[in-house]
Amino acid sequence: MPVERSVEAAFAAGLLDPSVSVPVQVKGQTPRRYAVYRNNVTVGLVRALEANFPAIRRLLGEAYFAGLARQFVQDYPPRSPLLFHYGANFPAHLAAQDDLAAYPYLADVARLEQLWRQAYHAADAPTLAPEELAGLDEAAMADLRLTPHPAFALLASPYAVHAIFTANRAAGAAVADPARPEWVMLTRPRFDVIVKPIPKGAHGFFSALASGVTLAEAAEQGFACDDSFDLAAAIRLMVEAGAFQSLSLRATP
């Protein structure tokens, strides 16, 4: 025989599951009264997902999103009271929906929304100043490594994830051709998150740099991704957007 459940366990069991009856410990076993808590919890968490994934909400429509979100909060209630991080596995949940198979870009749009919030709440840090790079000896260049800014993130997608994200965070127009690849960089030099589509080669270059390899190795990676990789343009882009916070000169990581 299982141990008798605590009041709290019995109360919690039905909060997200409408098929569970009112806990016996509740005086009078009043369904409408217990339902206030169920409703508070469900509506509150569905609203949290709406706030966290506004582009997905617009793409799916309010009613469809609410239904999907209700299912998600029942299956995956938050594990942290930091609700602005809630829904880390919502993109995967979207990808797993058979009904949404015709919209394969949704998961990556949701990933971009998740990355946006992570960037928004990331730690404050200075960004690499152009003078720091300008002042380097030519001989030091080969061993140059960069430390990414805490808000820096990259996303590569086979879909036009930036165009769809941008159009649906505000009331923008529909994106005509979602099935084209895009590479996206997120930075937050001070308070505003910058979401920028970048060339494929720059994505490979930044990705390598952020992993801690030298500038030379990262440049090689950029060309490996894309023959037309423009190293000077990519360096300019990263400094302008505040992708990195500091540099170091060491032969090995």
Partner: peptide, 17 residues
């Protein structure tokens, strides 16, 4: 009140006996 049970955070102020 309580708002977390096991690992789930319910985002509501739930009643105590």
């Amino acid at each position: 009140a309580w708002s977390t049970h096991d690992t789930a955070f319910y985002n509501d102020l739930l009643p105590v006996p």
